[in-house]
């Protein structure tokens, strides 16, 4: 318990100091509220518009919870396909990288033209953001299967399918999860960007509206909420990993 407290207090104190400094300097230097609101202003405004913020937050959460798992699923599927069919890796890997070089902001309007103003283009956008880290990490993990274990499986006469399901996939799980964690960190940002391109709900949409009204305090409230969502998603993935990869020796025990 004490050791956990020791881990928590340095970042906690740092954040509190940062907030205090922010609060003091905004009052001290008489910074206009529309330029940079004080933390206390943001807090007050957050409470005041809690009901509308809640709706938009839930919309963003819903969008994330659809797009993120789909993106992860596509990423895993891509990794598996590229691993099992070697020539497909050679053919598709450049395409995979290319998909990440196209600016998301530019892609948004195009997706709207192709798929309309509904949820679909937004979901596709999140998937595009999320699948890549999973695919790359998964592919790396699958390729790095332990050679001795592989030899054992082959000697024992294991089929390709058995080698995959009983060795390669569980072996790739830790690196797959490092990809999923990166995706989880991007997912909410992806959702917020997706909401900028159209529709009438979500934190991204909310921020855009507030920006036109110079309501910086409300924008900050929305930013904080999206950060919290992101952290929540990340924590959920970490918990899932802890449960699925529970066989791994703990780092401090090694």
């Amino acid at each position: 318990m004490i050791s956990r407290w020791k881990q928590i207090w340095p970042p906690l104190v740092a954040v509190l100091l940062f907030l205090a400094l922010w609060q003091v300097s905004v009052t001290w230097f008489h910074v206009e509220k529309w330029m940079l609101p004080a933390p206390s202003d943001i807090w007050r405004e957050g409470i005041a518009s809690a009901s509308s913020l809640k709706g938009h937050t839930l919309a963003t959460l819903r969008l994330t919870l659809i797009g993120f798992p789909l993106g992860v699923a596509v990423g895993i599927a891509a990794a598996v396909l590229l691993h099992i069919v070697p020539w497909s890796a050679r053919a598709l890997y450049p395409l995979l990288i290319l998909s990440q070089n196209v600016p998301i902001i530019a892609l948004g309007p195009l997706l709207v033209i192709w798929f309309g103003f509904g949820q679909l283009p937004k979901i596709i956008l999140i998937m595009l953001v999320c699948f890549f880290p999973v695919a790359v990490a998964g592919l790396g993990g699958l390729a790095q299967t332990d050679r001795m274990m592989l030899q054992f499986m082959k000697m024992a006469g294991a089929s390709r399918r058995q080698i995959f399901s009983k060795l390669e996939l569980p072996h790739a799980l830790p690196s797959l999860f490092s990809g999923i964690k990166i995706s989880a960190a991007y997912a909410v940002t992806g959702a917020v960007v997706a909401e900028l391109i159209g529709g009438n709900q979500g934190l991204g949409y909310y921020m855009q509206i507030q920006k036109s009204a110079f309501r910086t305090d409300r924008m900050f409230a929305a930013i904080i909420l999206s950060v919290l969502l992101s952290l929540l998603l990340f924590a959920a993935v970490v918990l899932l990993e802890k449960w699925l990869v529970r066989w791994k020796p703990r780092r401090d025990a090694q």
């Binding site: 274990m149 030899q151 054992f152 000697m155 006469g157 799980l173 066989w247």
Partner: peptide, 18 residues
Amino acid sequence: QRGSVSYMPQQPALFPWR
């Protein structure tokens, strides 16, 4: 032909998730 011998490698090569 594979699968006709039982094999023990140099390292234990036990599957860590099992």
